[in-house]
Every structure is written in C-alpha cells, then in structure tokens.
Design a protein around this nucleic acid. Structure first.
Length: 199
DNA sequence: GCGACAG
DNA sequence: ATCTTGTCGC
C-alpha cells in the first residue's frame, strides 16, 4: 500500500494554469490515484503552435545528494539565437517521493519549479531532463512542467520509458517514430495514446 | 501471470 | 539518480 504527497496540483486539475508551488505539498494519494489523475490531466491538454520565435531558452536538470536524501535542481537560461548564458538558479529540497517509472514528476517537479521561480528572466521555452508526452499517460515530467509553467517544453530523456523505436540514421534531422510494439513492422501503431477523447 | 520501467 | 566494475572502440 503506497501513500504519497505532492499531488495536490493534479487534484486541482480544473485550474492547471493557476497552480502554485504551495499546492505541491499537502495531499496523500495512492499510486493508482496518481495514475488516474495523470490521465485526467492529459485529457485536457491541447497543443498550441508557437506564435513567435523564442528569445530565451532554459534547461533544467536534477541531481541528488550522496545520501540520496536531498534533490537539487539547476536552471540555465540562454539567450537565443547565440546561446549566450543569461541567468542560472538552483534549488534544494528534501526528497519526499520515491522513483517510480511513470511518476517521476512527483519526485522532481517541485524542486524544478522552485528553481524556475527564482529566475528574474522569463524563459520562452524549456528543455527538461525527462520524457514529455512520450509517457504511458502522456504526462511525463517535461509535459507536466509545461502545463505548470504554461510554456512550451521539450522532453529530453536519455533513454526510453515506453514504446519501441529503431535507431534513426546518423544524419542531421533524421528521426524515427516511437511505436507500441517491439517490431519492425511498419504497421504498428504510434505508441503514445491520445487521452484527449478518452477517460 | 510476467516483464518493462524517464530519473 | 549514483556507485562500481568490466568491456569495447578509437
């Protein structure tokens, strides 16, 4: 039986845009409730194209203390298009949530948010160390933070969480699709379910 | 029922 | 994530 905190912002799914950092600390929900809430939030996500080119881009990554009891987030803001460093911040929190594949947000989002809230500049877009919508419920850490910040985010994970893919050619701009089965069959479906029209 | 599984 | 050891490629 699991019981975890840090889920109130999902509880307030009807007002994602107004979520506050303080909302991240007060509720205890079960593992299955957390999953249900991720699905519920993902239902409401809509994609909107960028209207103008970003001028500031931020990168976020987390590290842990040697004893594993503290989590540290660092944010680096770069000016575009020349990538000149503009600002950096860090934040440190106690670790309050275990690592569970699919629920990384509840472990890393709070400290990431704390670090971003220290920024004096307002980045137009974020690159985040984790999956975005390439997630079983379309709500990886990067997608989650994108909703929280109400800004575009790019999930930049170092390995696969869900689905299968073939390595793309080693050429600039090359890509392959994430599929739902370990197969070279071209007819396999796209791995990332769309929750916008389902429960 | 069993394996897979971001950081 | 972090640590440690073993293997591989340049």
């Amino acid at each position: 039986m699991f019981s975890f905190g840090n889920l109130s912002f999902l509880r307030k799914q009807e007002s994602i845009k107004n979520m506050q950092t303080k909302d991240l600390h007060s509720w205890d929900l079960s593992y299955s409730q957390a999953i249900a809430l991720q699905k519920s939030v993902a239902c409401k996500v809509q994609f909107t194209p960028l209207k103008k080119l970003p001028k500031l881009i931020a990168g976020i990554d987390c590290a842990f203390s040697k004893d594993g009891k503290k989590i540290i987030a660092a944010v680096v803001v770069l000016k575009l298009p020349d990538f000149v460093p503009a600002e950096t911040t860090t934040a440190l929190r106690k670790v309050t949530f275990p690592y569970i594949p699919g629920l990384l947000s509840f472990r890393e989002a709070p400290v990431c948010i704390a670090a971003v809230e220290k920024l004096k500049t307002g980045p137009d877009i974020f690159i985040i160390d984790g999956q975005g919508i390439a997630h079983p419920r379309r709500l990886g850490l990067a997608a989650h933070l994108g909703l929280f910040f109400n800004k575009p985010t790019i999930g930049c994970a170092k390995s696969r969480l869900t689905g299968y893919f073939e390595d793309p050619p080693l050429e600039k701009g090359a890509y392959t699709l994430l599929k739902d089965k370990k197969s070279v069959n071209q007819n396999t479906q796209y791995a990332i379910r769309d929750y916008r029209c389902s429960s």
